[in-house]
């Protein structure tokens, strides 16, 4: 992690991960998981929110680790 925090792409990567956690916490606090909306007729909001969270981490990881990670 020292190598990641040591350059700008790494700091942006860490910021994206942190922001995704903060955004998810804010959405949870606002009660998005309490709504009875079902995506595609069966996907509950805690599932949808979590999948969105994982996708953000996946994309950030792919960009950073395959293009900028110093040990790649």
């Amino acid at each position: 992690m020292r190598e990641i925090a040591g350059h700008w792409p790494g700091r942006i990567f860490l910021l994206v991960l942190l922001l995704s956690v903060v955004v998810m916490a804010v959405l949870v606090a606002q009660g998005i998981t309490e709504t009875d909306v079902l995506l595609f007729g069966w996907m509950t909001m805690p599932l949808v929110l979590g999948i969105g969270f994982i996708l953000v981490w996946l994309v950030a990881y792919l960009i950073y680790f395959f293009h900028f990670w110093p040990y790649r």
Binding site: M1, V28, M45, P46, L47, G50, F53, W57
Partner: peptide, 19 residues
């Protein structure tokens, strides 16, 4: 479905360990 947040945290935690 609320307990699924343990899974979202765990996936991030395991990724953090390896990253």
């Amino acid at each position: 479905p609320g307990y699924v947040f343990f899974i979202w945290g765990s996936v991030a935690g395991f990724a953090c360990l390896y990253m």
